[in-house]
Design a protein around this nucleic acid. Structure first.
Lengths: 354, 354
DNA sequence: CGAAAGTATGAAACCGTTTACATACACAGC
DNA sequence: GCTGTGTATGTAAACGGTTTCATACTTTCG
């Protein structure tokens, strides 16, 4: 509760001097300084953050806005952001699970004056107004943006080429009736992955429009239901590409419940490479994206943008999405997925920085 | 960049009126109000958060401090905090991965004046000073505290009884040579779980000191190494209790790599019930704790504490830890763990709120 | 010895809000 | 025509810091 004034009074100096001591700005008499420090610690004086950022216009805080905080992917992103922010001495102000543009606007408003920059995940049309308004005061970095915004940096995954590689792999294994379980409509990642799926089929001389496409929503339950639908289909597809791993998990469960063997009866490929993918039965072939790295990249771009101020251009960055072959696609001949990766005596692998 | 003064000037009113319009405080002439609103939107005026919290002394932000942001457990906790905060219109200021007391203190200092309350995870001796200092200004809620702090609410899991139930279950299945893989030294959860382990053995007439205890650190790799050590032991334990699921995952991998079957050769029980536990091969018997619920509870206690101000007592809350029997312990006779839970046509279960 | 340069500190303006208090006006009741 | 009551708005003082500029006191040096 002690303010800078209290410290000044007790120490017998002016508030300017106290401020100088705490920001070791200009040279202060060492004797005075130690006296001030002494009094400050006695009074348990801690500078008030709000007041500081009001005058300095710096908050040492990064705003983070997510559409939802659901599933492992998002928490990995946050972990990446958090880790990198800490390295740069920034804290993060989190606001998530906004379902519509109005909410996003309110959240953005609440952040204003409290952040030095904003990292926004998967902005869509509804949140574009917020982005524009925030952008006029602090730098904004977009994660997997649906639409690029003039003057904003962005980081995204190579969803398209990742999905294409996955489906090409299935085609290469001899499959020519491949089903797709899509992500939620309107989701960029989902759409890009669907586009990659179609392109791979087309490139292989197959008709994308003839393929079975089941709408999903990135959740496990959607995968389960899709599995039921796929099993009912005649002729039955010989392979399925799920637009994310969560749905692949549900799909595997549905197939198992029906007594089908994977990959013998049906091959399955997912997307994301979540932590449990390697532990599934069978280990899931999927496309690996480094969610944590995405967050880190975003922070690094942000640091650059803050340094450059309004003069900096807007960097667009693409992070790789790499096909990771395990057993659910039927390509791997031996090993257990987990062991393959863990082998070498070094113990289990961890997905770490970069 | 427009301030309240700009709006006032253009609209031809005083700043007080503008402020009143935005806080729809006392009655303002509707005509004046709409004019102010009009000007404000034209000027893209957004109130400055830092300035607001300086005068009102409310930030609508909760501080969250974690020792590390690693593994699914923590991200679940954050999700719970985030979700509940949003419901109460609070944002969260996150600061994590502090390795020593000094860092915690700095982080706490940076938060001061920016938060209305602090939720601190797993505080130890090193961070106690920070807690004490913060506590003098805003309410503090402790998560799984190593030491209770006078005047702080806290939420924790019933680690002790959960672990005891797990080990009792193994004993009930006929095991009398049970090994323990511990968590990191100094971690409360780890120690409580170890205590539950010993108690269960003692209650069953077995000597806790005779049991094989392997020090771990909650990471997968520690579980793997522990597995190797356990297999080398003669006579070989017939069951293992891992202090968390991550280590159980590593353990299972080590056992599989050595060609041992679980639970036929060795029974395994974990703790936490992370998402992948039900998907492991075999599905992992473990003790379920609701990490997300922990976060939510913390926020609810915080809301109460903020309302009560300094007058409120300090609530201590315990959340249940429930044994969840799957197949790795050898008790379940049929089903696949996943299917058992997912059965009923309702699709896969999700761990949701409460 | 006096001017110039350097060091240590204080006074006061400012950051962008909220809010207690004062003021101004309109209208009712006597 | 006063006084009393509402309503609508303005003035100015906080809130807790940072920072520019001014001031006072030492040194240094020609």
């Amino acid at each position: 509760m002690a303010t800078i004034r209290d410290v000044a009074r007790v120490a017998g100096v002016s508030i300017a001097t106290v401020s100088r001591v705490f920001n070791n700005h200009t040279l202060v008499n060492p004797e005075t300084a130690s006296r001030v420090l002494e009094v400050a610690s006695q009074l348990e004086y801690w500078p008030n953050g709000a007041a500081q950022s009001l005058t300095t216009r710096r908050t040492h805080t990064l705003g983070v806005m997510l559409p939802e905080l659901f599933g492992e992917f998002y928490s990995e992103v946050i972990r990446g952001i958090d880790r990198e922010s800490r390295a740069h001495d920034y804290q993060i102000l989190l606001s998530s699970s906004h379902s519509n543009g109005e909410e996003v606007l309110i959240a953005g408003r609440a952040m204003l004056g409290r952040i030095d920059g904003l990292i926004m995940m998967a902005p869509d049309e509804a949140s574009i107004e917020t982005v524009e308004r925030v952008r006029r005061r602090v730098p904004v970095v977009l994660l997997n943006p649906r639409i690029e915004v003039e003057g904003c940096c962005s980081v995204a995954f190579e969803n398209f080429s990742g999905a294409r590689a996955a489906v090409e792999h299935l085609v290469g294994l001899g499959h020519n009736d491949i089903a797709l379980i899509t992500g939620p409509q309107g989701n960029v990642d989902a759409e890009e992955r669907a586009r990659g799926f179609r392109r791979a089929l087309a490139d292989a001389g197959l008709d994308p429009d003839a393929a079975l496409v089941i709408p999903g929503d990135f959740r496990e339950s959607a995968g389960y239901e899709a599995g039921v639908a796929i099993l009912a289909r005649r002729p039955r597809p010989t392979a399925v590409f799920a637009a994310n791993d969560c749905m692949a998990v549900g799909l595997l469960a549905a197939l198992r419940a029906a007594g089908r063997r994977v990959p013998r009866d049906i091959a399955v490929v997912g997307f994301d490479d979540i932590a449990m993918a390697a532990y599934l039965n069978p280990p899931l072939t999927t496309v690996r994206v480094d969610a944590c790295g995405l967050g880190q990249q975003a922070v690094e771009l942000m640091m650059g943008a803050m340094e450059a101020g309004a003069t900096g251009g807007s960097v667009r960055q693409l992070l790789p999405a790499v096909l990771t072959v395990r057993q659910s696609c039927g390509a791997a001949s031996a090993g257990t997925g987990y062991l393959e990766e863990a082998a070498g005596g070094a113990g289990p692998v961890r997905r770490g920085r970069k």
